[in-house]
Design a protein around this nucleic acid. Structure first.
Lengths: 308, 308
DNA sequence: CCTTCGTGATAACTCGCGGTTATGATTGCG
DNA sequence: CGCAATCATAACCGCGAGTTATCACGAAGG
């Protein structure tokens, strides 16, 4: 029945003392004010202004509206400002989920970049393997996920990827990690068939799946002696001479490489690292800014060029 | 940029959990909500809702709007309610000015009536002779004036009566007041020429003017021995035998008539009592209600029929 | 697995709010 | 007694904001 525009007009009249002045103060013409007042009067069913010769004065009801206008317009401004702050990245929040090995360098570098640019944007970060992070995204518990996919697979295996927006960040080469005294340690490139008989140490379930696929391509079935989700443990086991492992570059970068030899495979194998979000969330400024920071962080590594 | 309607929509979405439910809750159709949200999103430059499968959830910015909506809509409702109270006479104020002799019975009876009907309407009452009250009306210091005019004159003598609305309330007969031992006290009707030689006691300036006019019509010029604004004093002087006076009925009604004889004149003379306000103020409910109460108060007296 | 139902999105149309310009009527002032 | 300033009114009009009709899709169930 009564809206912000009407209140704005009443307040302008109260402040300026005449229709004409109120009009110029609001950037309108005078008849706009006349008509607005008339509309308000017939809506409220009472006189709002009193015409005194060539001036006007507010009636009691008019004063009431002008008085409440202050409250309403202040609250409206506050709402507008708060949203503008979010839109202008002077505020806002992003919930980021990334798989563990990305939280060593890729993500921290991105978050540092984000913090430098938009210090007021707050980030809530948690670790999670791709299936988990995609589920969170789908459930609305997360705005942006960093996930990976081995070559030839998708980030979500059985998942429906339709609602997601997937932005490639970088390729991460998978190497064979072995102790320095391994017979093949001297080779610069490893043919997987040459380690068919070694005991294997497998990482996360998806990594194990990848190992099996690669081995199958090389004509053998790997003998998995140990399994652990923790890549620090994987490297420890390798260092202790208990087996060999396929380890992505990102992890080798972050961990001590002492006591470990890592060699590229032939044919080479990579996993692709993606940022995943949704159409809607991509339009949330804080999410877009974080995404951009992730892309820059990925580019600044640039050991292996990003495949588009 | 952002208005109450938008906030109402966001709040409805937050409360109801879906566009469809929000639409029915607001009495709109579903596409109206879709479009409203889209408009808001392109105005604010950020996503406000997150489409999750077939449901929607508010983003951070959307939550902000929904949160502020409570404040804004509450303030709007308060303003609307307060104005409605004034319009519905559950509140409101009227500033009434009346000439002294009307405040004895006409005005108190009217105010009692008003109070009974609309106990919440507050009245600010002050006394003032017609020129004063009309000036207050013109200056916006008064909403409703009770004024009088002797037959053949206007309420405001030199005044511009254009902006005023003048409602006749009643006629007030003017009588000759004299002490009981006056030679003419036995007559039921007095011919003014018969008291041409008596000393006169005059009331307010306008009343004195009226006396002079009437006397002139009767062929004499009155010998004004005393002048006072106070009609109680006038009656006292008459009672003391110091002269005769023209006194309106209204005053005789209110004062003790002991020791006074009051007789109608021939030809009769009356003053007309009017309620005066302006076009705008007449549309203020409290003013209209007071005016109506005054008219009823005048009718309920009905000693002399009201002349339209 | 396919159908069905409920959800939001989109298109096309319409109406009226709320602005404009042009002009008139008054009032108060020099 | 004009002159200037003010509000009112009329005619016009664009666009915001609603409608109906229809589509696309995701979730749930036989």
């Amino acid at each position: 029945m009564i809206d912000a525009a009407g209140l704005r007009v009443m307040k302008a009249i109260a402040d300026e003392g005449s229709f004409t002045a109120a009009a110029t103060s609001l950037g309108f013409t005078q008849p706009a004010i006349s008509q607005m007042v008339r509309r308000l009067e017939q809506r409220t069913g009472t006189a709002l202004v009193e015409r005194l010769g060539r001036n006007v004065r507010l009636t009691e009801a008019g004063e009431v509206l002008a008085r409440h206008a202050v409250t309403v317009l202040a609250a409206l401004d506050a709402a507008e400002e708060e949203v503008a702050a979010i839109a202008g990245l002077r505020s806002g929040r992003v919930r980021l989920m990334a798989f563990p090995s990305s939280s060593a360098s890729l993500v921290p570098r991105a978050l540092a970049l984000l913090k430098k640019r938009y210090p007021e944007v707050s980030v809530r970060f948690s670790e999670g393997e791709p299936p988990e992070s995609l589920a969170a995204l789908r459930a609305g518990d997360c705005d942006l996920a960093v996930a990976f996919a081995y070559e030839g697979t998708d980030v979500g295996r059985g998942e429906d990827l339709d609602p997601f927006i997937i932005r490639p960040l970088m390729d991460d080469e998978v190497r064979l990690a072995m102790p320095p005294d391994h017979p093949l340690a001297a080779q610069s490139v490893i043919n997987l068939a040459d380690v068919a008989d070694d005991p294997w140490i497998a990482g996360c379930p998806r990594c194990r799946g990848h190992l099996v696929t690669l081995a199958h391509g090389a004509g053998f079935s790997p003998n998995v002696a140990f399994e652990t989700e923790d890549y620090v443990a994987v490297l420890g086991l390798v260092r202790a001479g208990l087996g060999v492992a396929l380890v992505p570059d990102l992890i080798l970068e972050a961990a001590h490489e002492d006591g470990i030899v890592a060699r590229p495979l032939s044919p080479p194998s990579r996993r692709q690292i993606h940022a995943v979000t949704t159409e809607d969330l991509q339009r949330v400024p804080a999410v877009a800014a974080t995404l951009e920071a992730l892309e820059e962080s990925a580019r600044s590594r640039a050991k292996v060029p990003v495949r588009s």
